[in-house]
Amino acid sequence: MKKSSWLYSVMKMLETLMKLEFEDTWRWPLLEITVIVTILTNLSNPQAALSYGARLFYLYFYMLMFTSIIFAKTFAASIEKGNIKLLLSYPVERRYIFTAKFLLSFLILYTAFFSSYLASMMLGGGHTSMEWEVTLNAVGVTLFLLLLYQCSVATLISIATSRGMLAAIISILALWRWGAPVWFLSPDNSSVVLFRYLSGADVSIVDAGLALITLLLIPLTVLSIAYLLFCRVMEFD
């Protein structure tokens, strides 16, 4: 990539912001705890014989704890303490700060959850009727969408409250109360449809496509609202 190109400088900026965020927020032992606890929760799942899809459902509740706390720290606490104000005193746009914070936490959580899921598959035995590759595809995509949903909601709540503790509590409650209905019990069962399609079940591609669009549309809408709110909050008035 050309060094002078616009894209290069954007990537460079995001990289710097993410590194700084990583060193500042993910200081020891937050990262280590996240990984260890997710692996342990996956391993100690009493329903080891459950299908991988059903395991995701249980994982959802462990995930929302981490997501809520980490996004409360990333967004709400740093607004509260003035870290973002400090960043905004340098020539960097609000959208890069938002993107860097969201992307970093999302990627770390996704890696932690996915690898712990992988570990539990390898160590936990249980259900083996599905092909590994297929399972990983299905779980990978569904986990991605689940986490995207959680993260977007947690981001919105964090920015709206701008208070660390409050954001964590409200996010946990909100994801707990409305997460399952949205994800598993909704009339069209989007996530189940998608998961089954990806695991090779007999689902039409149109239904799967619709499910995917729905599952992307919800978090992206929430995220857009969160970003607009972020810009409003960052006008400090």
């Binding site: 400088s9 460079k12 900026m13 710097t16 912001l17 590194k19 700084l20 060193e23 500042d24 200081r27 303490k81 003035g82 870290n83 104000k85 400090l86 960043l87 005193s89 340098y90 020539p91 960097v92």
Partner: peptide, 24 residues
């Protein structure tokens, strides 16, 4: 800024390097 929250976990020079990078 008055009482700005500099990242306390970093060393001074590391922090300043980040600032220089952010300033491009």
């Amino acid at each position: 800024h008055e009482g700005a929250p500099y990242p306390t976990v970093l060393t001074a020079i590391k922090f300043l390097e980040y600032v220089a990078r952010i300033k491009g």
